[in-house]
Design a protein around this nucleic acid. Sequence first.
DNA 1: ATGGCTATGTAGCATAGA
Length: 258
Amino acid sequence: MRLATWNVNSLKVRLPHLLDWLEQASPDVVCLQETKLEDSVFPADVLAEKGWHVAFAGQKTYNGVAILAREPLKQVDRGIPGFDDPQQRVISATIRGIRVVCVYVPNGQAVDSDKYRYKLAWLDALQGWLAGELNRHERMAVLGDYNIAPRDQDVYDPAAFGEGILVSPAERQAFQRLLQLGLNDSFPEEAGEEAIFTWWDYRMASFRRNLGLRIDHILLSGSLARQASGWRVDRTPRRLDRPSDHAPVLVDVPDSAD
DNA sequence: ATGGCTATGTAGCATAGA
């Protein structure tokens, strides 16, 4: 079972890229972020024609998340229970016995801004919710755009970022608290510096110069993490005309026979 | 030099992203 996450930065613009990529990369489950589409205009028909089951939670202009799967999605839930939020940033579903949670973590804009405080509160709510979810679901995957680079090596120029957003101690601590729940980063510890970034700024020819960040992550519960393999970033869609600024991240986990 | 793009909503720029 191949799991993937991709911040498409407008599904309207990126739908052709997505359809091509689904054929090329042959994932079984795909979490999308920043669809920027209201539910009434989500391209469910086009995806259904290609054999995809879909669940989505969108809004106008901003945010929006979706899960695509080769098999039917069960127990679809939207948002973080108990955290009242008009921003559509979370959708979850069970596919083939795996609880899949798709997250679009707030950006934070600037340290100490209202949006930064919202980001930290949001992460706190996410952690509280996932703690319980992990007790209910042994096989669980939390995929998405976390807007956090966990280590200095995940940033092309750590000095330039200092303690700003995406790398600030409070954000990194929030990420570590997710790991402490029993979620494991499927990113291999032994990975070098090559091909680990998942986002490159549109400006400054950042992609060509590989000035990027690793901010999209696939976290797995223990039983899944022990058997996961093949973590990788697929940079091919980032090379196309009018690309998303994020590249898809994939990992393979074993199919549960039952 | 702290910018440089891109997408959206909306009709010349403002907001947001990371």
